[in-house]
Each structure stands twice: as structure tokens, then as C-alpha cells.
């Protein structure tokens, strides 16, 4: 175990080399996640959050490719690993949960098969002891009568239950880090709350770090320690959650926060960020937010560098809000 942060993503660039041109899905993203820490990765649809998560797991398929940057996990740069070594980390030390629980479990395989294979992919244990771990993991995510549930197929579960099963699969090998890609977005509000609460509890108990991907800042508020905001494939601002929410410096973060209902006084109309996300294909140099930014000046036609306005905060903007 190294002394540094658990995960350090440093200048990550992941591009898709399509026939229509290069799509810079992730373009210079940096953040760190400490052991047992919860980092919220926030941004609009298409901002490259999922692709950042897939990059960390080594799940990028052609025509996509990590073109630059380091992903240092527990002292090892994952981008330098061969596929087999990366695979041995996947699902073992870093696990991932996806957005739509109706789609993530294989419809034709029983739950026990799907959990046991996750255990046996990384540990040479018997089916019996793998099953024992599976049962334990189901109990931890609040599934009653696990023995019965192990023999069921995914279609016999509700959406919320399926997501619990997916979380159990992520937890079963005791990972150091879980990447959760909007795991509550597809669920109804009460279930969302429960899953959120239990995820948080389980991770705090076991000291598992969490990279929580979402477009919903209100979810992050009560959950994360730190936030990293992404826009059009780039990281724009990061820092402790309270600092960012109370005092956003980047015009885009400010816009995001203003569009969250709970943080507005009653009766005042919500402020939406005007305009649309630019196409990643035609994105030239300069700040990608300038078409929509109220503070933009001619200087913003150049790309802003990353600055550190206060310790622990990082920002990429020429004219931060004060």
C-alpha cells in the first residue's frame, strides 16, 4: 500500500477516433480520491463522466483510446498495465455500478451465477465459499431471505432490488473503490433515497472509497466529501463539497447550482443555463463554455489554465465569480 491518495487521475484524455473526426470525450481531467473518501463527479449529459469511469476500469473499446494522462491507483499507473493485470483489478479492487438496473444484470443467468462468477474471477475459492460470500453481500445491501433470492432470475426482482443486487456484486470482493455511474437516476424517489443511504453506510463502514457520477447536484450535497465538475469533456472546477456548493467560482458550476430547486427560495423561478452543450466534434480551442457564459470576454477564446484559488480547490476559468 502506498502513502499517496487511493486514486489519482492526472491529465486524462480519452478520445474516440470516429470516421466523422476525433471526439474528445475526456479532455484533460484530473482529480484525486482518498481512501474511504466520496468524490462526486458532476456534469451535464455528454460531459464525459461515464467515459472517465470506464477509462479508470480499462473498459474503453475502439475507436476510443486513452491518449494521454495517468490513472494512478494505489501507487500503480493503470494505463501502463497489460490487459490481464488491469482485469485482475477490475471487479476486485475497483468495482462499478451502472445507471439502469434493468439492463445491468444478465437476464438469462441466475443471481447466484452472476455473483459467484464475480468472486471466482478473482479468488480461487470453491463454489460453496463463493456462495457464502454472495449471501453475505446480499444481506449487507438489505436483501431479505438471500438464499431464496440467490436462485431467482433478474426478472423476478423490482428495479430497486436489482440495483441492490448489482451493488452486492460490486461489494462482494471488498473493493477499495466503487465507481457508481448514476445508480439511482432510473429509480423512483423513495427507492433512490434508500439506495443512496445504504451505499453511503456500507462504504463508510468498510472504508470503501466512492466515485459517484451524477448530473444531479442535490444528490452530491448530502453524500460527497469532494466534488469535481466536468463540462464538455474537461474538468472545470473541483474542491470540498461545502466550498463548491456555497461559493462556486466557475460560471458553469454556479449555473448548475442555481438550477437545483432545493437551493432556491420559494416562488422564485429556477434559473436555467441558457444554450446547449457544444458538439465535442467541432470543439475548437478556447473555453468550451464561452458560448453560454455571461462572464465571457475575448480572452476566453484561449484555453484557461488550471489555477488553485485556495488550498484544495482547483479551477479552470479566466474570470471566476467572486
Amino acid at each position: 500500500m502506498s502513502g499517496g491518495p487511493l486514486l489519482q487521475v492526472d491529465g486524462l484524455r480519452m478520445h474516440f477516433f470516429t470516421k466523422a473526426g476525433v471526439v474528445k470525450a475526456v479532455d484533460d481531467v484530473s482529480f484525486t480520491v482518498g481512501r474511504g473518501e466520496i468524490l462526486g463527479l458532476v456534469g451535464e449529459s455528454g460531459s464525459g463522466k461515464s467515459m472517465t469511469g470506464y477509462s479508470i476500469l480499462g473498459l474503453i473499446d475502439p475507436p476510443g483510446r486513452i491518449v494521454e494522462g495517468r490513472i494512478v491507483f494505489d501507487g500503480t499507473d493503470l494505463t501502463r498495465l497489460d490487459p490481464a493485470a488491469w482485469r485482475s483489478i477490475r471487479g476486485n479492487r475497483i468495482a462499478m455500478i451502472f445507471q439502469d438496473p434493468m439492463m445491468t444484470l444478465n437476464p438469462v443467468l441466475r443471481i447466484d451465477t452472476q455473483i459467484v462468477e464475480a468472486v471466482q474471477a478473482h479468488a480461487g475459492v470453491s463454489r460453496e465459499s463463493a456462495l457464502a460470500r454472495a449471501r453475505e453481500a446480499l444481506v449487507r445491501v438489505g436483501i431479505a431471505s438471500p438464499d431464496e433470492r440467490l436462485h431467482a432470475y433478474p426478472h423476478q426482482f423490482s428495479g430497486g432490488m436489482r440495483q441492490r443486487v448489482a451493488i452486492a456484486i460490486a461489494l462482494v470482493n471488498g473493493p477499495d473503490l466503487i465507481i457508481a455511474d448514476e445508480p439511482t437516476t432510473a429509480l423512483d424517489v423513495t427507492i433512490q433515497g434508500q439506495i443512496l443511504f445504504e451505499m453511503q453506510k456500507v462504504c463508510r463502514e468498510s472504508g470503501t472509497a466512492l466515485l459517484w457520477i451524477t448530473h444531479d447536484l442535490s444528490v452530491i450535497a448530502g453524500l460527497a466529501d469532494k466534488v469535481c465538475v466536468m463540462y464538455a469533456g474537461r474538468f472545470v472546477e473541483s474542491g470540498p463539497v461545502a466550498d463548491i456548493l456555497d461559493n462556486p467560482l466557475h460560471p458553469y458550476s454556479r449555473g448548475l447550482i442555481d438550477s437545483v430547486p432545493a437551493r432556491n427560495e420559494r416562488g422564485r423561478p429556477l434559473r436555467q443555463i441558457p444554450g446547449m452543450t457544444p458538439s465535442l466534434l467541432s470543439l475548437g480551442p478556447g473555453c468550451p463554455f464561452r458560448e453560454r457564459c455571461a462572464s465571457a470576454t475575448p480572452r476566453c477564446a484561449e484555453s484557461p489554465e488550471v489555477t488553485e484559488p485556495s488550498p484544495g480547490r482547483r479551477l479552470r476559468c479566466f474570470h471566476p465569480a467572486r
Binding site: 473498459l59 477490475r90 468495482a95 439502469d100 444478465n106 462468477e117 464475480a118 474471477a121 478473482h122
Partner: peptide
């Protein structure tokens, strides 16, 4: 997604294709 999830579990390529896809 279930194929991506199977890969995210760290299963071998053979198992992902031979079991998850093929079945």
C-alpha cells in the same frame, strides 16, 4: 449494459462471450 457489467466484474473475455453473450 450486462456485457459491460460482466466485464466490469473482471471476468475473462472467454467467459463474457461464451456465457454472457452466447447464452
Amino acid at each position: 449494459d450486462y456485457v459491460k457489467f460482466a466485464r466490469a466484474k473482471g471476468l475473462s473475455q472467454g467467459r463474457v462471450i461464451g456465457v454472457h453473450v452466447l447464452k
